[in-house]
């Protein structure tokens, strides 16, 4: 492991009780949700990780504890090192604080995760769906969401399909 990366990892371990995993040279730190904001502030301000490269989630259904992992891929432009943070989440409708104030591009990433996985982000400035239509039911990338079986809607069969479609709560 890069010595500069080792420094960050040691800090996360000591201060936020992070659990470290390494696979093929990629370092992942597991953090509990309550440490998320302080840890990210520290990573950005003290260790110069200035770019959020990617943010996504993984669903481990039928496992429930943890059911989800939210994955953050961070990058330091200055030092050219990468770090992955994983936050495990329990239950079917979890919430997590948003990191939008620390990394502004998390805005759309978190909208996508809400859309696809149904993970709520507390304090998010624009909590709408990103990709699916606003009245969509369910979260497609969850493992208990079936693949397919959505009938293609045309003019001639639109009404017929709408009869069977789930309706949004009024």
């Amino acid at each position: 492991m890069d010595s500069r990366l080792q420094d960050v990892v040691n800090n996360l371990k000591a201060r936020y009780s992070g659990v470290v995993r390494e696979f093929r040279g990629e370092v992942t730190v597991l953090l509990e949700p309550e440490h998320l904001i302080p840890a990210f502030t520290c990573i950005k301000d003290e260790f110069g990780f200035d770019m959020l490269e990617a943010e996504t989630a993984v669903d481990y259904w039928p496992q429930t504890s943890p059911r989800f992992h939210v994955v953050y891929q961070l990058y330091s432009m200055e030092k050219n090192i990468q770090l992955r943070i994983r936050v495990p989440l329990d239950g079917n409708a979890p919430t997590l604080p948003t990191i939008e104030r620390i990394f502004p591009n998390a805005n759309w990433h978190e909208r996508e995760i809400w859309d696809m996985f149904g993970i709520r982000f507390d304090g998010h400035s624009d909590p709408r769906r990103l990709l699916m239509p606003a009245d969509w039911q369910g979260h497609p990338l969850r493992k208990d969401y079936p693949l397919g079986y959505e009938e293609v809607q045309f003019d001639f069969n639109a009404e017929e399909i709408m009869v069977h479609k789930p309706r949004p709560e009024k």
């Binding site: 696979f23 490269e53 990617a54 996504t56 993984v58 994955v71 992955r84």
Partner: peptide, 20 residues
């Protein structure tokens, strides 16, 4: 059962694959 994140330079910028 592990994950990797691999990047490349696409014509539009960084394209990354997170694969688990």
């Amino acid at each position: 059962a592990e994950s990797v994140y691999v990047t490349a330079e696409s014509p539009r910028g960084e394209i990354g694959v997170f694969l688990e």
